[in-house]
Every structure is written in structure tokens, then in C-alpha cells.
Write a protein that binds this DNA or RNA. Sequence first.
DNA 1: TTATAATAGTTTGATGTCAAAGTATTTCCT
DNA 2: AGGAAATACTTTGACATCAAACTATTATAA
Lengths: 165, 165
Amino acid sequence: MSKYFLGSTLDDPIAEATRQWRAHGWEEAAPGMAAVTTITRVNRILVSRIEEALSPFGLTFARFEILRLLGFARDNELPMGKIGDRLQVHPASVTSAVKRLERDGLIERVPADHDNRIVLARLLPDGRKTLEQATRRINEVFTSLELDTATLQDLTAHLAAIRSD
Amino acid sequence: MSKYFLGSTLDDPIAEATRQWRAHGWEEAAPGMAAVTTITRVNRILVSRIEEALSPFGLTFARFEILRLLGFARDNELPMGKIGDRLQVHPASVTSAVKRLERDGLIERVPADHDNRIVLARLLPDGRKTLEQATRRINEVFTSLELDTATLQDLTAHLAAIRSD
DNA sequence: TTATAATAGTTTGATGTCAAAGTATTTCCT
DNA sequence: AGGAAATACTTTGACATCAAACTATTATAA
């Protein structure tokens, strides 16, 4: 049974909302409503699973993504701005997450020598080690989803239409 | 071009991550990684669109969902706990959102007379009015998604497997 | 050369999410 | 009846997200 869900197994709140939408003459909007609501719920569940897997390392998903990005980057470093671009998050969110990664000794922040406006986040040895362990753990989550590979790929492909804007 | 995305249109960070995953021998986890990452990104984009549409009413998506739920409920009221069950959010999140809806005069909180532990959130006339206008606006978002109806329904059906746990 | 514009990050403030701890009330069981 | 356990909700604290305002640095243009 799901977290926070104490009611009867029989009623599915999203199915119920869909019925209501149709009953109120919003037929056209019903499939979109159901899809968006579903994505929101699923997102929370997935992030929750991931953060449970990452908890032994004191990492959140957001911070893991930054570590992972730096682990792939040339010289293990990237400007704050690039991180925001790649992860599609607000610059303030990058500042916030990087501050915590630095606090925990996983990365360091260094000014770029050719342009002092730029701050580079650089993976440290401890960060590399944590990253490698965390990646193994998170991959267990990725391989144990309820959907088969083909469905996952379909899903990814379809949602790309929304993601790109 | 997307918010916060300043780089070349050619590089797709998720496609790149998938390449890296395969290159590092995490082939099995790659589809899951891509799907989860995509869902996270898409969720943020959708919530962002919705909240832009709701901004004239001073509503967030979370608070809209509560209003919408109350609008469908018998007597326009529900216990805090039921709201959390239906929306699959933590009780503390309900408390937080309801506090703001009450502050804005859209709902009221009343103790249930048969059990004083229970707090009922009840839609007020102003809340009803705001709800109706907000629903029209949010339905415009739901009807203007980049995916056709069949795809939306497929998506909803597939993701239900994850949502139910 | 210098004033203006653009760029890169950070700070602040509002909201949302969750876990864990705390309070109040009701139920259950001896 | 009375104490323990369960239930319902709130509070607190940590973290994430975004928008808007602010600072610093570099580029542009008169």
C-alpha cells in the first residue's frame, strides 16, 4: 500500500477525477488532466525511492545529479551556469545545491581564471568516491522500475516533446 | 528555447547521459535513468506552466488541487487526512497548504463534531468562485499539451503501475 | 576612454515536500 | 474504570524550487 494512502484500494483518485472532469463537460481536458496529475504523483514516488537509496550518502537527487554531471565533465569541473543549463534548473537552485556539496566536502568552488564572473564547481576525491557508490545504488532503483525496457523507452521518447520546451 | 537553457540546441543532456551510462557499462540501468530523469524534467515544466496559468488567482498547483477536491466533495468539505490520502501527499503538506488557503479566505477549517481530532477543510463562496475561474484556466493548459489524446492515455495507463505503489 | 549593456552568480523571500517529534482525542483492552 | 495504543493533526527543521533584486565583472559602443 502506498505511503499516505489509507483509504480503500478500490477508489483511484485520478480515475475519480477523470470521471468528474467528464461529468462537468470538460471532456477535452480530461486526458491532459489525468496525464499531468499522474506525472506529478509518479515523480514524487520516484524521487522518494531514489532519495531513500541515496540517504546513506547524505545525498539528495538534485545533488547527485550535480555530482554525476561533474563526474562526466572534462577535468571534473563545470561553471555554475552550465550545470543549470544541463539540469534545467534555476541558477539559484544550483547555488543552493553546490553550497551543500561544498559544505560536505564533495566538491570545491573555484573562480575561472579567464573570467572572474564564472565560478567552477569541481569534484573532489571524496566526491568521486561518494559518486561511484551512489551511482551503483541509484542504478538499482533504475533497474527495478515496474515498467519494461520498451515501455520506458516509449515513455522517454514521448515525453521528450514536452521536455524540449 | 527553454528556460535556463542557454547551450546549443544540438546537445540533449538526457541523451548525453544515456550515452555515458552505456559507455560505463550501465546498459541495464540506462532506460530507467532516462525515463526517471525525463519525468522529473517534464514534471517541473508542467507545474511551471500550470502555476503561470494560476498566478492571476494567487494559487499554486498544490492549493488548486485541494480546492478542486473540496469542490467535488459532499458538502464541499473533507477531513485533512482524506485530502492527504487522495492527493498522496504528506499530512504536513496538507496542513501547510490549507493554512494558506484559509489565510486567503478561500476555505475555512472546522472541527468535526463527532470526533474532535478531525479537522474539516470547507470551501467558502470566494473559494468556489476562484476555483471555477482557475479550473477554466488550468483546462487550457491541459488541452494544449504537445501530445495527442491517445498518447496521453497510454502514458497515464503505463505510469499507473508506478503510481499505485 | 568611458558610460552603458550584457553576463554570471548570489541573496532573499515565498512555497512545497518530507521525516520526526509533539499534542490532543478517541479507542481498545485488561 | 483506567491505562496503553491508535489516530488525527500540527510543528519544526532540512532541503528544493522559483522569481526578483542585487553585486561583480566583462563586453560593447559612442
